[in-house]
């Protein structure tokens, strides 16, 4: 409260200063602020400073105007404090709430439109709960998310010929960024220096490998295979895609790996190098698939369960 008052007075002062160092009646100052819109000019103003002669001349003392008790038309006062754009600003999840309200609104408006069965609707990969939460950056409950997605899926089933544009645009936010069902493979390219880039992932590791024609030199994060991987097995899996296709002495590899442990990094490299080699020799795809270098292994560490010591391990049985 005190601060708002202070700022108000400072605002007033600044206005005063702009008026060539002359004191202005409060009335005028209020007018300048446009607070209240129509303050009657005739109202007497209060000031403790001596008035200049001009002022006295321009504002002769007059009696107050009659109070008008007639009901005034409702007019909106301009708001003097910032108001958030969304009414759900003060909830913890405004974006989600707004989206949800928008979907409900659309549902009220277009819910009566004819629908098609789910299997005939365009196949779309919707964001998963985790994905959605991450994209929004808000703490939402899984149950709320599912209620929201039920609406999304219902709206998506509206007959495509009648589906309004606003519905289509509203549903965009719920789609995954990459649509696997409509996606076409991007063709790997070889740049002007003869390099091709491939990426691979395994467990928590990500690998990028640049492959050029060469004599079998491999550098991972600037180190040789022997320096980077202590285990011979990991070294072999890192270059397995070249070794399985008997191309180890035909290419050089320069790779960057991050995240995860040694096994994950080695196997992420397998995939990355395989993809990069495919740019040079697309015909190797069946051989590489047979060697297990094409399919990404989706397994991750299994979550720990309550009542267990690890994911599966149970605590030791004790009699009492």
């Amino acid at each position: 409260m005190a601060s708002s008052k202070q700022s108000f007075t400072t605002a007033l002062r600044s206005i005063r200063r702009t008026a060539n160092g002359q004191w202005q009646p409060l009335e005028r100052q209020f007018e300048a602020l446009r607070v209240g819109g129509s303050v009657p000019r005739s109202r007497r103003c209060l000031s403790t400073s001596p008035r200049s002669r001009d002022d006295v001349e321009s504002f002769p003392i007059r009696a107050a105007a009659e109070i008008d008790f007639a009901p005034r038309p409702l007019e909106r006062l301009p708001i003097a404090r910032p108001v958030p754009a969304s009414p759900s600003y003060f909830s913890r999840k405004p974006t989600f709430q707004d989206g949800f309200l928008r979907l409900e609104e659309l549902m009220r408006e277009y819910g009566k439109l004819p629908t098609i069965p789910t299997e005939q609707a365009e196949r779309i990969a919707w964001k998963s709960f985790r994905n959605f939460k991450h994209a929004l950056g808000e703490e939402i409950k899984e149950s709320e998310f599912h209620r929201c997605m039920a609406l999304v899926k219902r709206l998506h089933r509206i007959h495509p010929d009648m589906k309004p544009e606003e519905v289509t645009s509203a549903l965009e936010a719920y789609k995954k960024d990459i649509q696997p069902f409509t996606r076409t493979d991007t063709k790997p390219i070889i740049d002007r220096l003869g390099r091709s880039l491939g990426t691979g992932r395994r467990k928590a590791s990500t690998a990028r490998a640049w492959v050029v024609e060469g004599t079998g030199e491999v550098l991972v994060n600037g180190k040789t295979l022997a320096e980077f991987f202590g285990r011979v097995h990991d070294r072999e899996s890192a270059v397995w895609s070249l070794q399985a296709t008997e191309r180890l002495d035909k290419y050089n590899v320069w790779a960057l790996v991050e995240g995860g442990g040694t096994t994950g990094q080695a196997e992420a490299l397998t995939l990355a190098i395989a993809k990069a080699v495919l740019a040079h020799e697309p015909a190797l795809k069946p051989a590489l698939r047979k060697a297990g270098c094409i399919t990404r292994d989706p397994r991750r560490v299994e979550r720990k369960k309550h009542g267990h010591v690890k994911a599966r391990k149970s605590p030791t049985w004790v009699k009492r």
């Binding site: 079998g216 030199e217 040789t224 295979l225 180890l248």
Partner: peptide, 11 residues
Amino acid sequence: TRSWTLGGHGV
């Protein structure tokens, strides 16, 4: 080449 590469460029 296999041994040479796995051996970190001929270590």
